[in-house]
């Protein structure tokens, strides 16, 4: 239904503009490019050069610009998504790997992987607002919906670091299992989920008390637990279901976010890493690092529908509406 609406509006626009569908943007870590996937045709329509080793990618709230962590260029690049032109670089600290845009649409919280630092950058003044010492190899980044708390997870220190965005200082540090990779606030900011790649778990925190509320384990038949390595995850509408990328086990887990139980596993590409939904969250696009492709998953039927070849080592994914 929604798809027809999109198609209709695309048709309506076709008079003035070339017909354009929504897009998924994928960073290719080893190609220094972005592959742009047309959600209607499920084909790569553009390949855009970036700085070196692009990983984290996120759009401004109004989608007027896209921010890209160019890790080896030690910069966050700001790109015009229409033209693919780099508008300017933001100071990012060394080796930016992943970041999150504060709900104020102005401040980026950036994990500097090689420096054990979280850098806060003002995207308007293009200045570094704060640098916060965190654990070794920071990676996962999240900001609470009300903007008061930012989270950095550190891969080697095995912690979630809780940052008060008012003072830009740490107010709590909580241990999680080995090598945390990704963090998300869910359920209106009452829960924080953190995936641990080597530990093979997701820890759910109660945000109010910063205490552990649940731990999610994964158990794939015929795959050794060592290979089940949760990394990126995203939620369906209403935060009811989580899709969790399980890295080198080449599967997504489908987790009931109410009961914390795993309901399904879906075979996707090799070393599945991050993912992005389309507008109504009916389709999910996963980046598969080793196979160099993106798997399209139908959310309702929980099946992989198509594989799209992108560049080498696809890492991050972001949704871009065009209407």
């Amino acid at each position: 239904m929604i798809r027809t609406t999109l198609a209709t509006s695309a048709l309506a626009l076709a008079v003035a503009l070339p017909a354009q569908a929504d897009e998924i943007w994928v960073t290719n870590e080893f190609d220094d490019t972005i592959s742009v996937i047309d959600i209607e045709t499920l084909e790569v329509t553009r390949t855009i050069p970036t700085g070196e080793r692009p990983r984290g990618i996120t759009f401004a709230k109004d989608h007027s610009v896209v921010y890209i962590c160019a890790s080896d260029s030690d910069a966050v690049q700001v790109m015009d998504p229409e033209t693919g032109e780099i508008l300017h670089d933001l100071p990012s600290g060394e080796d930016p790997e992943q970041f999150v845009l504060h709900p104020d649409n102005r401040h980026l919280y950036i994990a500097n992987e090689d420096d054990a630092i979280t850098t806060v950058v003002d995207t308007v003044s293009r200045e570094v607002v704060a640098q916060i010492d965190v654990g070794i190899e920071p990676e996962g980044m999240a900001v609470s919906p009300d903007g008061t708390i930012a989270i950095t997870t550190s891969e080697t220190t095995n912690m979630a670091h809780w940052i008060d965005t008012e003072t830009q200082e740490l107010f709590a540090n909580t241990l999680v299992d080995s090598r945390p990779r990704h963090a998300e606030f869910v359920k209106d900011g009452t829960e924080l989920w953190v995936s641990s790649e080597i530990g093979g778990t997701i820890t759910v925190f109660d945000v109010e008390t910063q205490s552990e509320k649940a731990k999610i384990d994964f158990d794939l038949p015929n795959i050794h637990p060592d290979r089940v390595q949760p990394v990126g995850f995203e939620f369906t509408n209403g935060d009811e279901i989580a899709f969790v990328a399980l890295g080198p086990s080449n599967h997504l887990a489908v987790v009931n976010a109410e009961t914390y139980e795993v309901e399904d596993y879906i075979l996707v590409g090799r070393r599945v890493w991050h993912m992005a939904f389309n507008a109504d969250r009916s389709k999910l696009f996963t980046t598969n690092g080793l196979s160099g492709d993106v798997t399209v998953v139908d959310v309702a039927s929980r099946t992989a529908e198509k594989t799209i070849k992108v560049g080498r080592f696809p890492w991050g994914a972001a949704f871009r509406p065009t209407n």
Binding site: D133, I136, T156, T157, L170, N173, L175
Partner: peptide
């Protein structure tokens, strides 16, 4: 050094 970074928080 790696331990000490964690130790700062614990």
């Amino acid at each position: 050094e790696d331990n000490a970074t964690t130790g700062r928080f614990t």
